[in-house]
Amino acid sequence: MDSELRDLFAFLAVLHAGGFREGARASGLSASRLSESVRRLETRLGVRLLHRTTRSVAPTEAGARLAERLVPALGEVEAALDVVNHYRDRPAGTLKLNVPATVARLVLPPIVAPFLKAYPDIRLEVVVEDSFVDLLAAGCDAGIRYDERLEKDMIAIPIGPRVQRMATAAAPTYIAEHGRPRHPRDLLRHACVRGQFASGVIPTWEFERRGEIVRVDPDGPLLVRLGAAVDLAVAAAVEGVGVIHLFEAWLQPHFDSGALVPLLKPWWQPFSGPWLYYPGRRHLPAPLRAFVDFVKARPAR
């Protein structure tokens, strides 16, 4: 790609991500390389395009006007280059997905291997992130999220199991010492292993039976970051630290081995499965189109 064009893409990567380090993570380039590209572009144009601080960057008036015209123009350039993919025997290129840890653990494993075998010229990058994400700013082609966390104005198609459940469990040693809860509110008297989102929010545990919904906020000796440290929470529950409330599929191997015992099963609440989502544009990059078609062709579960 011509150096002037690369500099323009670098400028947009930094602007969309809100900083050079963030732009580097999104683009796969180093922060120093992005900085050099933007500086070279500013020198060539003779105007400052970005206001730089130690924490972030913001466009100058000239930078904002340039970005306004560049986004659709460079989008057309990328689309034009990708058209060549349709003349290959097989789609090629990089597909970058942004997914939460639960999806990386429970949804993608049966999909990734057969997809890459079917399309050996595609390189798949998976970014695991549990917070809300601006796909374009993050430099991703598509994301996978649940209903309540989908970005607006996106095309979404179902991926993975269509119905999932949250399960509650404890180790046999814990049950022998503390007994079984008979109702969700009994958990308020038990030691519970809790999770916390990156925002600091600790989600309540929700249960449902015959139309009755019960939400509880129990206490316990261990609090972990959801996504990053869920395996630690599961290991602690297996060792008898307390009661855990997590995706059924995540706990199933421990149910099968007997390391964990299901609790309050009639109250386990079902919910709809995740969605693959991407910007609604007429032309999809060939790797994303291949992935969308592959997901659509898989039998529903």
Rank of each mutant, 00 (worst) to 15 (best):
W250G: 04
P253Y: 12
V230Q: 07
G220A: 06
P270Q: 05
L223S: 12
E239Y: 09
D256Y: 00
A259P: 01
S257R: 08
G240N: 07
V230S: 08
V216F: 05
L222W: 00
L226K: 06
V243P: 00
A228C: 03
E212D: 03
L223T: 10
P270E: 04
W267M: 13
V261M: 14
L226Q: 08
H245R: 15
L264T: 06
F247L: 15
V238S: 01
A233G: 11
L222P: 00
G227D: 07
D217Q: 05
P266C: 06
W275M: 15
L223G: 10
V261F: 02
I244M: 07
Q269V: 14
V234W: 04
V238E: 12
P253Q: 14
L246C: 08
V214K: 07
Q269A: 09
V261W: 02
P274H: 12
D231H: 10
W275N: 07
A229H: 07
G258I: 09
L223Q: 07
W268A: 03
A249Q: 15
D231Y: 00
V214R: 15
G211T: 09
R225G: 10
G273T: 07
H254A: 08
W267P: 04
A237P: 01
W250T: 13
R225V: 11
G258Y: 10
A259N: 12
E239P: 02
V224F: 06
K265S: 14
L246F: 13
W267E: 12
A235Q: 14
Q269W: 10
P262D: 03
A235C: 04
K265F: 06
A249M: 09
D217T: 00
I244E: 00
D217A: 03
G220S: 03
R225N: 15
G258Q: 11
P218V: 04
D217W: 01
V234G: 02
V234F: 12
V238D: 03
P221K: 07
A249T: 15
K265I: 14
W250Y: 13
G242S: 04
V238K: 04
A236V: 12
V234L: 10
A228W: 06
V216W: 05
P266K: 06
L251M: 12
L223H: 07
A229P: 00
S272T: 04
I244P: 00
H254T: 07
P262F: 02
V230L: 13
G273D: 13
G242D: 05
P253L: 15
A236Q: 14
L222K: 02
P253N: 11
L232C: 08
V238Q: 06
L263F: 13
E248L: 08
E212I: 11
L263T: 08
Q269D: 11
